[in-house]
Design a protein around this nucleic acid. Structure first.
Lengths: 256, 256
DNA sequence: TCAACGAGTTCCGATAAATGGAACGACGTT
DNA sequence: AACGTCGTTCCATTTATCGGAACTCGTTGA
């Protein structure tokens, strides 16, 4: 979504382009999306394919390579943060009985690291690894509230605001006010700002000034759970988030 | 597990080193595992961290970055192969009632792409994305049987045989005989060769000479299911694998 | 107190790799 | 048969990578 400097950055920009597209891309399509000369792009793609990061179908369309899967399964299962957070997610889920999400801020996106819900019958993988815009998700806004003014402005400046629903925050000023509000209250609400019919209450994980900016949320469908109920759990979310923050501090500080 | 040529390859070799290790690695640990001068490695790591592919903890230990997760969730959900195979896996599961695995050959490893089992209660992600050696898994051996003699020898030459269990194939000659046997029979068996107490029957997906070499397997614990029962399903596995191969041919050939 | 050590980081000339413009070959279209 | 499109290859130029050495900082031990 952002990168581009350095040889490695260029290569990843190609992966990004492939990942961002809903339809399979052919060489010329990529050429249009990645700002690179033909020869250069061709070689970069070749390298990526050779490394197993990109896969080419028989019709010359590209998809992300399975080697990424191998890396990711590793990243996920060993993630210190996720492992520390997991018991807290489960505990919170037991308290409220609704779906719990764990996500971290990555640039201007939230990447979901874990999810605890009642009906595990849903097909696996759900939205683990999925990315959503930070400005219209509870976890995202909560995480943003940890940033310094400078960091915050830096991120805001690259956001392209888009109205997913009527309640989506529409511009930078709206987001600034929202962040202020979240800092004051200690929790964030997503009032169907990303997906109609879904709202959530969230709290930030991490401390101002430190690199980790993340959050957890309780998510529920509007038709079944009013916002008031959700908001009444603000204390619980905040408490769980604080517990994770503390666990991270304790276990990261003294030693690995 | 292999790469190393080119700037990109070097970078990925670092990721591989981090992924391969069970314990968190610090700078010096990586230095020992990746054959690179200090200055060079330092810059490569910096680049990887900057791109979000690698993450550095406060104690200078490294773990794989969550950005990989984002790529992987994409790679998985959009994978043409996985999507085509999925209904066949479910159908096969309904027939036999045991766990079905889908895996592809990547170098000398099998990477698991999907899994269908009865008790989805198990924590998600299970072993999707996990990698296992090709010479001691049913899927791996089945996939190897599709390779040309030259390709096969190339791969065999880089395998480091290791005895996971008493029945693990111990050397190249043993593997060559096994592959011959699989070609003759049309299916592969894993007689507790990778994990004691677990065996499976598998069949190859793909055609000789084509790039895709994959397989599916029916897996079961020894204590509950004798090998004879498993082997009696060889026809079903083979049939399902053939159906996937055919679907891939049809849907990949005419157009994307 | 000071020297020695190990871990991580920075610097910079030499070197090798990436760059990108242009030409080429393969198809399908008009 | 001439044309446009798409993918691929080539090669002189440019640029980033390489890697040895020096530097910083915290720890250990005499």
């Amino acid at each position: 979504m952002h990168s581009g400097t350095g040889t490695l950055g260029k290569a990843i920009a190609v992966l990004d382009a492939v990942a961002a597209s809903q339809v399979p891309l052919r060489f010329t399509d990529l050429l249009a999306r990645v700002d690179q000369p033909r020869g250069t792009l061709h070689r970069q793609i070749s390298n990526l394919v050779e490394e197993g990061l990109l896969q080419v179908n028989s019709d010359h369309s590209y998809e992300l390579g399975i080697r990424l899967l191998r890396f990711a399964s590793n990243a996920w299962s060993r993630s210190k943060f996720r492992n520390i957070a997991e018991p807290h997610l489960i505990e919170l889920h037991k308290k409220v009985g609704e779906t719990i999400h764990l996500g971290v801020l990555q640039g201007i996106e939230v990447i979901y690291l874990d999810k605890v819900e009642s009906s595990q019958a849903v097909r696996m993988h759900s939205q683990i690894g999925n990315a959503s815009p930070c400005y219209c998700t509870g976890v995202g806004k909560a995480a943003l509230s940890l940033l310094s003014p400078a960091q915050l402005e830096e991120r805001i400046s690259v956001i392209e605001f888009r109205n997913y629903t009527p309640t989506t925050i529409a511009d930078a000023d709206g987001l600034r006010r929202e962040i202020e509000d979240i800092r004051a209250k200690g929790y964030a609400l997503d009032r169907e700002e990303h997906e109609a019919g879904i709202h959530c209450v969230a709290a930030a994980i991490g401390s101002p000034g430190e690199p980790l900016a993340a959050g957890i949320s309780i998510t529920a469908p509007v038709y079944r759970l009013p916002l008031e109920t959700l908001e009444s759990w603000a204390g619980e979310v905040h408490q769980a988030a604080a517990a994770i923050t503390e666990d991270m501090r304790v276990r990261a500080g003294p030693r690995g």
